[in-house]
Simulated assay, not measured.
Amino acid sequence: MHTPQATLIGLFSVFLWGTLALLTRLTDGLIPPLQLVAMTFGLAYLLMQIRWFCLGHTGVLYMRQPWQAWLVGVGGLFGYHLCYFFAMNHAPAAHAGLLAYLWPVLIVLLSALLPSEKLLKRHLLGVVLAALGGWLLLSDPDEGLQPAYAAGYMAALACALIWSGYSILSRRLKSVPTDAVGWYCLVTALLALACHWLLEPTVWPANARSWLGVVALGIGPVGIAFFTWDYGVKHGNIQLLGIASYAAPLISTILLIMAGEAYMSDALIAACALIVLGSLIAAGVLNIRMGAGKAGVSVSSGDTE
């Protein structure tokens, strides 16, 4: 059984991930990616340590998890970001982002394999509409996929598989407390730091604005977001969370427009309509009934197909 409260907590992650692009802009794009991963995940771990300190312990008890939980946790967090940055460096950013963002679709489809979960027609219709909205935001109509960037495209597809797999397997490991994610963040930070030392130069933030961006990333889309996502996929409506995740690039674009970093477009308006409509249908708020020679739309909160 999933609870509405857990679903709302998971949805907060989607909002925080929507702030990722704007907060990354604050860092001026000068910090090497693996160094940024190490710094932000290190801050995420410190954030959880503050919570443990306030509760009167150091969190050591949350280290005692099955090896499967460690494999899923560290593999999901570190593996996704490693593949993501490889994809961004070896393929056009728009195409890499588009392929990597197939993970919400995969979450909805793979959720049918979970105990007590059922894939309904409204889930499929909702994910198709939301995915179309995501494609409008992320795709570049002037360029197609090019064979020269095959390695980058494969890495982007690996991102989608890793994150959807992480989310689904986290549901199977729902007995593992969310506090354990704090330790996954620490290991991810250390692995990213090791890779950074081997592959990148070190570039520290040059001003207060850049430091603000790093700290905000570590607290929000890289910190709290992973903790709330873990709780949401373990105890909330994982299918709705998967579909609603397409709102993240929409939120990102809207925030960039508000900050003067992007501009309103017909594609944005259409994407907004498709994502909202898809999410409402998937959540059961809107029921679409198709019949011979007629179609109908009704407002409901039921779970019927």
Rank of each mutant, 00 (worst) to 15 (best):
P4M: 02
Q5C: 04
I9S: 06
F12P: 00
F15M: 11
L22W: 13
R25W: 13
P33D: 03
P33R: 06
L36N: 01
A38P: 05
L46K: 00
T58S: 11
M63E: 06
Q65I: 07
G75F: 07
F78Y: 15
Y80S: 02
Y84D: 13
F86N: 14
N89G: 12
H90C: 02
A94L: 08
A96H: 02
L98R: 08
L102N: 00
L106K: 04
L106D: 02
I107Q: 06
S111C: 02
S111K: 06
A112L: 03
P115D: 04
E117C: 10
E117N: 12
A130R: 06
L132F: 14
S139W: 10
P141C: 03
A148G: 15
A151H: 14
A158R: 02
C159W: 05
W163C: 00
G165C: 02
R171M: 01
P177E: 09
A180T: 09
G182E: 04
C185E: 04
L191Y: 00
L193R: 03
A194D: 01
A194V: 14
T202N: 07
N207W: 03
G213P: 02
W229S: 07
V233G: 01
H235C: 00
Q239Y: 06
G242I: 03
S245Q: 12
L250H: 01
T253H: 12
A259T: 04
S265Y: 05
I269L: 15
I281M: 09
K294F: 07
V299F: 15
V299P: 00
S300A: 14
G302L: 12
E305L: 12
